[in-house]
């Protein structure tokens, strides 16, 4: 795709990991003969992302998500393959590229611990050479969007984890990057904070047509922000497409929500997930859903019946299990 914001082809990263057995003898042996093992963290990943898209980048721990993001941000040199972001080769870390992207990681700390976040924002202004008027307008708009006006003058050390994360995100976006790599931006935050950060990311994407790659273990983040997801497992792309398509492809079962006229045992129709008097939730194989529904309607006094997709968390778990 010629006009893709992010274009990745057969990207690989193989780590050389030192290895030795336990014990004194092995320790002595390692003095003269060092053994290393090759660990493929990313094993040939390809995808393109259009400008302005928000893409969920999903996978279990160790799947290769962070390694891929680090290669796209320019922190890691790929072992093989090609990556282009806004036309730049990230590993070269051209300053022109770095001025147009940001990587927010859970452990990143660009804030000065002892000073109010406002002072750290000022430092960001100088680092990214943001014109004063543009800087003030952006900073004030972000402070409003994140609703942090009351705490922006407090020393960072006195802020809660969620408040600090909000400040980190504001600081990371003051230069209005066109590309956002967000690695678990809501990790460890309460539901209200997560929601606020999600709405901020959505607003930023709309206002600046920014391209976003987001990793998160919270499916609420993905459902709220991403039309498209890329699922990676063992360093390879397992799925790339609409979030809804993921459910179609990987959900091996459907849930039947049944309301009966009077209580009955439905265990011979499928797996009873929940039963509360006349309300029963059944889990049946995807291919069996229609047939079991028809049987239920014929054989039981059914007041209401709906066929539902399984929760997205369950589907993702299913993808990782295959």
């Amino acid at each position: 795709m010629a006009d893709a914001a992010i274009s990745v082809a057969e990207l690989r990263k193989i780590y050389q990991v030192p290895e030795r057995e336990a014990g004194l003898r092995a320790a002595l042996r390692s003095l003269v003969r060092r053994r290393v093992r090759e660990v493929p963290a990313v094993a040939g990943v390809s995808f393109t992302i259009a400008p302005g898209e928000i893409v969920g980048f999903l996978g279990p721990n160790g799947a290769g998500k962070t390694t891929t993001l680090k290669m796209l941000a320019g922190l890691l040199h790929p072992t093989d393959g090609e990556a282009r972001v806004l036309g730049y080769q990230p590993y070269r870390r051209d300053y022109a590229y770095l001025r147009q992207m940001t990587l927010v990681m859970g452990n990143r700390n660009q804030l000065q611990w002892d000073l109010p976040a406002l002072d750290s924002f000022e430092l960001q202004r100088a680092i990214y050479r943001i014109p004063q008027t543009e800087f003030r307008a952006t900073r004030d708009a972000f402070i409003d969007l994140m609703d942090v006006g009351a705490i922006v003058s407090k020393p960072v050390r006195n802020l809660s984890l969620g408040e600090r994360m909000k400040m980190e995100i504001i600081g990371a976006l003051l230069h209005r990057p066109k590309i956002l790599f967000l690695d678990e931006p809501t990790i460890g935050l309460d539901v209200t904070m997560q929601r606020r950060i999600r709405s901020f990311i959505a607003a930023y994407n709309q206002r600046y047509a920014a391209t976003v790659m987001l990793t998160s273990h919270y499916m609420a983040d993905v459902e709220a922000l991403c039309q498209r997801v890329i699922v990676i497992h063992h360093g390879r792309v397992r799925y790339d497409g609409p979030l809804a398509g993921l459910v179609d492809r990987f959900a091996a079962y459907r849930q039947l929500e049944v309301s009966l006229a009077e209580p009955a045992d439905l265990s011979h129709y499928g797996e009873v997930v929940a039963a509360n008097g006349v309300h029963v939730t059944l889990r049946v194989a995807k291919a069996e859903a229609s047939r079991v529904s028809a049987r239920l309607l014929n054989e039981q006094a059914v007041a209401d019946l709906t066929i539902e997709e399984p929760p997205i968390d369950d589907v993702i778990e299913q993808v990782f299990a295959t």
């Binding site: 680090k70 320019g74 922190l75 770095l98 452990n107 990143r108 700390n109």
Partner: peptide, 11 residues
């Protein structure tokens, strides 16, 4: 990880 943060800055 401070060095990673520093490497992401255009300076």
């Amino acid at each position: 990880g401070e060095l990673s943060a520093a490497l992401l800055r255009p300076v």
